[in-house]
Amino acid sequence: MPGVELSGVSFRHGRGPAVLDQVSLEARPGEVLGLLGANGAGKTTLFRVVAGLLKPRTGQVRVAGVDVATNPGEASRRLGFVPDEPLLYPRLSALENLNQFGVLWGVPAAQARPRAEALLRETGLWEERDAWVEGYSRGMRQKLSLCCALLHRPAVLVLDEPFNGLDLGASLWLRALLRARAEAGDCILLSHHQPEVLDALVDRLAVLRRGRVMDLVDRVEVARQGGTARLYQRVCGDETRRAVREGVP
């Protein structure tokens, strides 16, 4: 049973151009699947479709074997999602946020408390556990967002640029955590823009360009082609050159 399965998924905003165009992708349990692509390639949209926040025009999405369209509640119970903008409550403390997410995801109080405390200690947020989140730095918010996504022990993790704003210690912690979760059989789908992180972390890499999966290669093949940066240059090189020439971000 695949961790995340997309078959023939297309999406567009209103009558605009296709953001996702017949995307078929499978992330297996026990692997870290990296998603690579330029800004606007459709990575965030793909994640939002997997999380059930956007309905695809065509195709089917399954999370841990559960159809997102027909059983969204069960799908989101099995999914931990870290969006590009954290979904935290600014006027609650870190502990209160974790309690709130526990309530929202149906984690019993007896389990939520020790899990929350352990996560806050691991991420180094323990000292600031009772401070309102509105006073947190970007990195601290990102750490707490990860804690909230991990609280209900999901089998599938979907992380949209999870390393953004993290300090070195937290980045290393997250890398180790993701590898450990993958080895324990969880499925992890993530996007990131730093090639060295992807080189070190992912088992397979999908390159997305203008809403289409252009390439899907495993770690050995990535290394054979000279690493993530080279692979990206080969698949999206003309787009990068055009962006540099025209000043497009």
Binding site: Y89, R91, L92, S93, L95, E96, N99, Q100, G102, V103, P108, A109, A112, R113, E128, D130, A131, W132, E134, G135
Partner: peptide, 22 residues
């Protein structure tokens, strides 16, 4: 200074606290 909050009541939603703080 950072504002601080007391320990949450585990298993109960914090919307009441949020409302009081708004």
């Amino acid at each position: 200074t950072l504002r601080r909050a007391p320990e949450p009541r585990w298993g109960r939603g914090g919307w009441g606290r949020l409302a009081r703080r708004s």
